[in-house]
Design a protein around this nucleic acid. Structure first.
Lengths: 160, 160
DNA sequence: TGCTAGAAGGTCAGGAAAGGTCAAAGACGA
DNA sequence: TCGTCTTTGACCTTTCCTGACCTTCTAGCA
């Protein structure tokens, strides 16, 4: 474990452990400075270790005052569901199946009625009949995005 | 939020919150003085943060006795906001604009933080880069679907 | 009335301050 | 030795901030 990427990964995960808000914010160049490496090394670590599959989401902003924000995705009760769901989704997703999944999420009280309605409506493709092909592929992508958002630890169902 | 533009934005929004008339009037140079920056910085903030998508209108007048007036567009009840929004959406919708709209819906408390995150994530198109063309058209369609759901009277924000 | 100075705000280009991308070189294990 | 993982550096894009210069409006004065 002497290698740089592993050490940076370790450091970030430890910092993430300690926070209660579910995310950390940092500056790429600053972190690179601490580890005496080039900034792009940080991207390498983020790209390879902090992926959605591994339970993390990374947001960033460029320009003056820019930052990186690493968000923890839940792996608890809700997370288990997620993994199963993702397997069920696969590359393509029909409307029937997506509706089924959404209903399950609602029954488990992982999403509200309103969220369910919104998701179903978006995935129905009603408003764009004919405009796009590969709608089943698109639906799978969208459903995945939604699941990722749902497991963000910095958000809870209560909302604001 | 160490950066200047964000701080000015914050300040203006707070001032707007506190007023009851729905707008504020101020002098560009004076505000610039308070933040110790050049006047054109104020324009930058107005141009990037107080756009129509985000629910603001800026009027101004030059010359002696000139001023800036920032108006917060109210969205009223009865689905008035829908009409405004739909006009703003049109046939195509860029990501910047959709993010503005979503922020606006959240500020108006028409959607929760979680719903906002979900919508943004879906509209970001991050997970399906390259897989689809006409993403701006698709985004417009999806946003319209979402608005439709939001206007359903049988659902309220509290959800289940 | 017509002119003009001064007092606003507007525009635009350039530089600075972030983060992003990509390919090539290096390191390391099977 | 081959292939994969790591590391680096050159170059790119986005966002922010400043300053020089422009336009518009009011007021005062001849």
């Amino acid at each position: 474990m002497g290698n740089l990427a592993d050490r940076i990964e370790e450091y970030l995960k430890q910092t993430l452990e300690q926070t209660s808000v579910g995310y950390i914010i940092l500056q790429r160049s600053e972190l690179a400075g601490e580890f005496s490496c080039v900034p792009s090394q940080i991207n390498y670590v983020l790209d390879t270790r902090f992926t959605v599959e591994r339970g993390y989401l990374v947001e960033s902003r460029r320009g003056g005052g820019g930052y990186l924000r690493i968000i923890r995705l839940g792996l608890g009760l809700e997370g288990q569901y997620q993994q199963v769901m993702r397997q069920l989704i696969g590359e393509q997703l029909s409307r029937e199946r997506s509706n089924g999944l959404v209903d399950r999420l609602m029954e488990e009280e992982l999403i509200t009625i309103r969220e369910a309605a919104m998701i179903k409506c978006v995935l129905s493709g009603k408003d764009l009949a004919g405009k796009f092909r590969d709608w089943d592929v698109l639906r799978a992508c969208l459903m995945n995005s939604i699941l990722t958002t749902l497991s963000r630890e910095d958000l809870d169902k209560e909302g604001s």
